[in-house]
Simulated assay, not measured.
Amino acid sequence: MHQAVKKVLSNFELIIASAAIIVTTALVMLNVFTRYFLRTGIYWTEEVATACFVWSVFIGAAAAYKHRAHVGVDMLGNLCPPKTKKAITIIVDFVLLLINGYITYIAVIYISLSYKKPTPVLGISTAYISSSILVSFALTTIYSVYFLIKDIRQPATGGTT
C-alpha cells in the first residue's frame, strides 16, 4: 500500500491532467452523439469540457516541468566545461524561479478579479477555472526551488539531471 500511495503522490499532476482530459473527451463525444443521433445537445457540456481542458493543460504543464520534460535548448551549455555548465544551470534555475514566482503572484491577482465573473452557461465563478493557473504555477515555483537547491548541491562534474 505504501508504494501505491507514493506512486500516486509522485504523479498526482499527471493523474489530475489525465482525468481532466478524459472528462473533456467523454463530454465532447457525448455531445457529438446527442447532437447527431438524438438531434439535441447537452447545453452545459461545452463549458465543462473547456474547463477540464484548461485544467489538463495547466496541470499537465506543471507535471512536464516537474519531470523536466519541457523542450529546452541546452546545446551551448553542453559545449561548456562542467563548472560553466553548472553556473549556467543555476542561473537558468534562478531565472525560472523568479518568472514562475511572479506568474504565481499575478495568478492570485487574476483570480481575485475573476472571482465575481460567472461562466455564461452554468453561472459558476470563473475563478474555479482560472485557479488552474495558480495551482500550476505554484507547483512550478515549488519545483523551481527544488531544482535550484538540487543543482547548487550537485557537483559540477556530475551533470544536471
Rank of each mutant, 00 (worst) to 15 (best):
H2N: 13
Q3A: 15
Q3P: 07
V5L: 13
K6C: 07
K7Q: 15
S10N: 15
N11A: 05
F12I: 13
I16P: 05
A20L: 04
A20N: 08
T24R: 07
T25R: 02
A26L: 15
A26D: 05
A26Q: 03
V28A: 10
M29P: 03
M29V: 15
L30Y: 13
V32C: 00
F33V: 11
F37I: 08
R39F: 13
R39P: 00
G41C: 00
Y43G: 15
Y43R: 10
Y43D: 09
Y43Q: 09
W44C: 08
E47S: 08
V48G: 02
V48F: 09
C52N: 14
V54Q: 10
A61P: 00
A62F: 04
A62Y: 03
A64W: 01
Y65W: 13
K66A: 07
H67K: 14
D74Y: 07
M75H: 12
L79F: 07
L79P: 01
L79N: 10
P81F: 01
K83C: 00
K83M: 02
K85Q: 05
K86H: 07
K86A: 09
A87M: 01
I88H: 00
I88G: 00
I91R: 02
I91P: 01
V92N: 05
D93L: 05
L96W: 12
L98K: 04
G101K: 11
Y102W: 13
I109P: 01
Y110T: 12
I111E: 11
I111S: 03
L113G: 08
L113S: 06
S114T: 11
K117H: 10
K117D: 14
P118W: 05
T119A: 12
T119N: 08
L122P: 12
G123Y: 12
S125I: 03
S125M: 06
A127I: 03
Y128G: 08
I129N: 00
S132G: 15
L134N: 03
S136C: 14
S136A: 15
T140Q: 09
V145Q: 08
Y146P: 06
I149A: 09
I149G: 02
K150P: 02
K150L: 12
R153S: 08
P155N: 15
A156I: 02
T157E: 12
T157W: 09
T157N: 10
T161P: 04
